[in-house]
Design a protein around this nucleic acid. Structure first.
Lengths: 190, 190
DNA sequence: GAATCCATGTAAGCTGTTACATGATTGC
DNA sequence: GCAATCATGTAACAGCTTACATGGATTC
């Protein structure tokens, strides 16, 4: 299980409330790990009981008070230990692939709209990633001060993960084009 | 949930026992959907109760008897209905990406071995896919009878899913190379 | 007046994993 | 003799999803 660890990473990058974490898991962190707020609150409680995180009550004006969580020493140690533990390459679950193979026993062309929808979703996601990259990681001018600046591990590692997301979306778009071409070979209306 | 549907697709491709299904979920189907035998037995029982599959006792010599499952009309209808239902692009859970971003708060170079291990696993998987493709989907000679043969939906769709697996592994290998280059930028011993 | 945002939670149910259990046959 | 393969299951637990619940502040 890595939800605890994903939360630790997110809180190390920036402390925040359960609500804020839930939003991050719907955005930046959500690109490679999703979680609902119910899950996050439950896990945060356990992490607090285990001494992995510290809590601070933050009163607010015009808004409900919030509990701001930050990583405690025990949490840092737990993350470090997990980082040094090998994990198995994760098992894939790809509904769309099940559907595509299943389409052989139904009408293959009926799947075209569905695949097009997914392709569009991946295009949107790619555009979103590329915009984020342009905003947060502009290419440094060669020879400029920035190009020679010492490497900031946090930034560089965030960037390489983002590049992974970009590569994934591009691969998916290309593959879904391939799928559409294959499906078109059976139709129309066949 | 798509485990039921993955089982339906697998049984349509070829009827078999729970044990055989479990093996398929560790091989061909397992490339995009995994399941353990415990899960499969439980779901098969439910599918049988719901009338989605038929069972036939098959006595065997020198081996325990087995129950051979095949798809019933209700199962076929359930699959068809699922195929026509739109599904949301699935949420991703990528442990390694969590680790990579987490490495910023630990020793980034300690992750190199782990990433290399994963890269090797993806290389092995790619080699396996390519061997399967060469075996099951040899390129037809242009102008040959095979090249003009009517399209076999089951085969073509299996092939396009396999091509997706190949594209995925290639993407992952390239990305993990990128990750390694990034990690190397912080070391050695830094 | 309705919808959305901020903020936190409970409860029920389903899915999935891990461990345990049995028992015959085949290959080393 | 030991391990692996074939074959099917039970039980306990952990993880995740969906639905429900509350309540003030802001925006349309």
């Amino acid at each position: 299980m890595a939800l605890e660890h994903a939360i630790l990473v997110s809180l190390l990058e920036k402390p925040g409330s359960g609500y804020e974490l839930a939003r991050r898991f719907g955005r930046s962190i959500g690109y490679f790990w999703t979680a609902t707020h119910q899950q996050i609150y439950r896990v945060l409680k356990r992490m607090q009981d285990d001494g992995w995180v510290d809590v601070r009550d933050v009163p607010q004006q015009g808004r409900p008070d919030k509990k701001e969580y930050s990583v405690a020493d025990l949490g840092r140690a737990a993350l470090s230990s997990w980082l040094h533990d090998p994990i198995e390459p994760e098992s894939v679950r790809h509904d769309l692939a099940v559907k595509i193979r299943g389409a052989a026993f139904d009408d293959p062309t009926a799947l075209i709209h569905e695949v097009e929808r997914h392709r569009q979703a991946h295009r949107d996601q790619l555009a979103h990633y590329l915009a984020g990259q342009a905003r947060d990681f502009p290419a440094p001018e060669p020879g400029s001060a920035a190009a020679q600046a010492p490497l900031d591990a946090e930034r560089e590692l965030q960037h390489v993960v983002l590049r992974g997301g970009i590569a994934y979306e591009r691969m998916m778009i290309d593959w879904l084009d391939d799928v559409l071409a294959t499906l078109a070979g059976f139709g129309p209306g066949r």
